[in-house]
């Protein structure tokens, strides 16, 4: 019966609503979530029992989302069960568009932000992972890294010095900045994989068939 418990109830409910609303255009989904969030706040319920009551009266997330398709045989919001060319192009240009004279990436970002299939957070993710896509990796790879030169001398310069066995003395001199390999290699792997994961995630979030089907089956 704590405020924490009721906050969790509300959060769980809103998450369920967000999932059930996957088939709606992002804009409409945001609007619905804002409305329902405001409704719960407006109810002034704080105890767990009160919150439960408010959520129960709201109905299940599936019932609410079905409200979009529920009116006098009016058609449901435009069927968007398949990814359109718009989204495919965005998902291809984000990782690889940089190679198309750099502008390709900007074009991908534009398509990403003008699509209604993603939410703001997903659009930010698509833009930041990675800026200019794989082109930036190639550029990082071409930056002048650390250069080292080794000079070895087989004859000790000092007799009776600390090198009596006559092992070759190696003088190493380095210049420039380098990331140690134990950071560099995992970092490179992460940077290689991140755009793939990002594209897969955005493709998943943009394709609503899965959510729509489960909503339909929940409604019987």
């Amino acid at each position: 019966m704590t405020v924490m418990d009721s906050n969790r109830l509300v959060n769980d409910y809103l998450e369920g609503l967000d999932r059930a609303a996957q088939s709606l255009p992002a804009e409409r989904r945001e609007e619905l979530l804002a409305d329902v969030r405001s409704h719960i706040a407006e109810s002034g319920a704080t105890t767990e029992a009160d919150v439960r009551n408010v959520l129960e009266r709201l109905g299940t997330p599936e019932e609410i989302v079905a409200g979009y398709e529920d009116t006098q045989g009016r058609p449901p919001p435009p069927a968007e069960s398949r990814l359109r060319f718009h989204e495919y192009a965005a998902l291809a240009l984000l990782p690889f568009g940089g190679f198309l004279f750099i502008v390709g990436w900007f074009f991908g970002v534009m398509l990403l932000w003008t699509s209604n299939r993603w939410r703001i957070g997903e659009k930010v993710l698509g833009t930041l992972v990675l800026p200019f896509g794989y082109l930036s990796l190639v550029i990082i790879g071409m930056l002048p890294g650390q250069t080292c030169s080794e000079v070895s001398t087989s004859t000790p310069t000092r007799v009776g010095g600390p090198n009596p066995a006559g092992d070759p003395e190696v003088i190493e001199s380095c210049s420039g900045f380098a990331i140690p390999a134990w950071i560099g290699i995992p970092l490179l792997v992460v940077l290689l994989i991140a755009p793939v994961v990002m594209v897969a995630f955005l493709a998943y979030r943009a394709a609503p068939n899965r959510a729509r089907r489960s909503t339909a089956s929940a409604l019987g």
Binding site: D35, V36, L58, G59, A66, T71
Partner: peptide, 22 residues
Amino acid sequence: FDLIRELGDLVTSEGTIYPLLA
């Protein structure tokens, strides 16, 4: 919220009013 209160029994699942308003 105000509309829902006033509609009383006419709404069964109160949340469905929001898709309708939209």
